[in-house]
Computed example of a mutant assay.
Amino acid sequence: MSRLEVLKTYKIYIGGQFPRTESGRYYIPTNYSGQKLANVCLSSRKDFRNAVVAARAAFGGWAGRAAFNRSQILYRMAEMLEGRKGQFIEELTQQDATREEAENEVNLSVDRLIYYAGWCDKFQQLFSSVNPVASSHFNFSVPEPTGVVSVIAPQQSGLIGLVSVIAPVIAGGNTCVVLASETKPLCAVTFSEVLNTSDLPGGVVNILTGKPSELASWFVDHMDVNATIYCESNSDTQQMIREKSALNLKRVFFYDQTDWISDAGQSPYFIFDTQEIKTTWHPVENIAGAGGSY
């Protein structure tokens, strides 16, 4: 008699914990050959709301950390991902990648985390400025994190797309709620296990699995989400996001033309996308008898 395989149940990741979806629903993704891959949570609106609460609670502490400490944590993620390469390669091959493609994707994901770890304490220098003004003031403009970012990750990428959209968001001090690929979800849930063992505070990254067709509107509707990133080219969904984002003036970014495998998939400008510019005016003190202003 043939043995009935026990499929692994992949949970979601909210607030540093691994709950099952509150809806109790799940789905079974398959690969091109029809092989059943796992039991995967079909997340609900309530799961998303719980994730936003966790992300907001974590935002103050994460944004307030020293930039070099965020850099250390991203580097630790790369270390933990490197240590579990074999598992990620296996999951990618189950999801229709060749072994060579899978190895390349995992190696590139490790390198991308290191790339953004290096930018954590440098992008402020690139994007800040001292502005000339026609009065006796110093005028400084500096980037600050936007807040909670909702992300609908690339749907045709099992790992590198997910890593490439999460890393710049958290490198800049934001927190996020991410919807993983519906058809290639295995690496996303395993990546959350990497995050959980990488000194990353709970709630900074929250990963859900499920259907973009069900969840996209909630990702942009929520009034406590400050920015939304959408990585697909569905024109109807893009139009819906544009319209609903106006309700609380969310920032919206469409990364539908980005090749995440290429060098174009990494840039400090991805960090800058989810930053706000704060400008400070400081009066110049006139010191009598000192021969000038200081």
Rank of each mutant, 00 (worst) to 15 (best):
Ser2Phe: 10
Leu4Glu: 15
Leu4Pro: 02
Lys11Pro: 12
Thr21Pro: 07
Ser23Pro: 04
Gly24Lys: 05
Pro29Cys: 05
Ser33Glu: 11
Gly34Pro: 05
Lys36Asp: 11
Val40Ala: 00
Ser43Thr: 11
Ala54Ser: 15
Arg56Trp: 10
Ala58Thr: 06
Ala67Asp: 07
Gln72Met: 10
Tyr75Asn: 14
Ala78Trp: 03
Glu82Ala: 06
Phe88Glu: 02
Ile89Gly: 00
Glu91Asp: 15
Gln94Asn: 14
Asp96Ser: 12
Asn104Asp: 09
Asp111Phe: 01
Trp119Thr: 02
Gln125Ser: 15
Ser128Cys: 09
Ser136Leu: 10
Phe140Ile: 13
Phe140Trp: 11
Val142Glu: 07
Pro143Gln: 13
Pro143Gly: 13
Gln155Ser: 10
Ser157Val: 03
Gly158Leu: 12
Ile166Phe: 03
Val169Pro: 09
Ile170Phe: 12
Thr175Gly: 11
Cys187Val: 04
Cys187Thr: 00
Cys187Ile: 02
Ala188Val: 06
Glu193Thr: 06
Thr209Arg: 04
Leu215Met: 12
Ala216Leu: 09
Trp218Asn: 08
Val220Asn: 07
Thr228Asn: 09
Ile229Gly: 02
Tyr230Met: 08
Tyr230Lys: 07
Ile241Leu: 13
Glu243His: 06
Lys244Ile: 12
Phe253Leu: 14
Phe253Asp: 02
Asp256Asn: 11
Trp260Val: 14
Asp263His: 13
Ile271Ser: 01
Phe272Asn: 15
Ile277Val: 15
Thr279Tyr: 01
Thr279Gly: 03
Ala288Asn: 10
Gly292Phe: 11
Ser293Phe: 12
